[in-house]
Amino acid sequence: MARTVLEAAPSMPALFARAAVTARGRGGDLPDTRLARTGVRVEAADLAAYDRVCAFPLADTLPATYPHMLTFPLQLALMSDRSFPLALPGLVHVRNRVEVLRPVRADEALDLEVWAERFARHPRGATVDLCASVSAGGGEVWRSRSTYLARGARAPEGAPDSDLSVSVGDLARPAATWRVPHDAGRRYARVSGDVNPIHLSGLTAKAFGFKRAIAHGMWAKARALAALSGRLPDAMVVDVVFRKPLFLPSTVTLATAPVDGGWDLAVRNEKSGADHLLGTVRPLP
């Protein structure tokens, strides 16, 4: 296993560009590289901007989804590297599982580590998990697993089947309606650095086969958690699957139901009822 410690967060526009020009000719197995950063501090202004875009209250503990802002650039570096077997353009975020082992304070120094694992077979291609672990004060405080689908790709011989099952109960009653504006992707891109062209404008999205720009899945997840502020366990696992793309602009509904000390939740298109996001929040012991 090769572990590389980066001094600073990599530049994401550069990574997206590198991933695009080196997309062809990829293959093979997952690299066993781990990328890490140590002593990372959350910038107060960055957190405030993120909170505003996702509707979190400005507080001294990080939203459950915030550490992803710190680990995603490292994961992108891993994925854009030539050693990564799948081409980044066309990868679709289909599942994200976050575990908050304890509330993380905004002023803690954080150690980050990311890696890829679980190259798996999917009926329409292959999936891969980008994992992250965040530690503070010597102990792990947060981890996440983002599953990406590469349509038409093939997992190696003997790979397991991919697991995209998150089941929710009956969520018939909407708790809230959100009007998601046409620039929701650009607004989230500004605070997250995730400048994937499919989120930025209709034109750039078309270039990648989408009829319009689509909202970031992690924005929808964050926005749903923000709606549950004050009603979430301190330690929890938040597991969501991303289904139909959320085209911009859209009007969507959030449905929630209390289950087992946590929540089931769904973000759906208001008109068609199509699921954009289904997920569960469960307390950790």
Partner: peptide, 14 residues
């Protein structure tokens, strides 16, 4: 400077 009335009141209640 970045905190709204609602942010501060919520934090204080919590």
């Amino acid at each position: 400077a970045q905190a709204s009335n609602q942010d501060m009141l919520t934090a204080t209640l919590d």
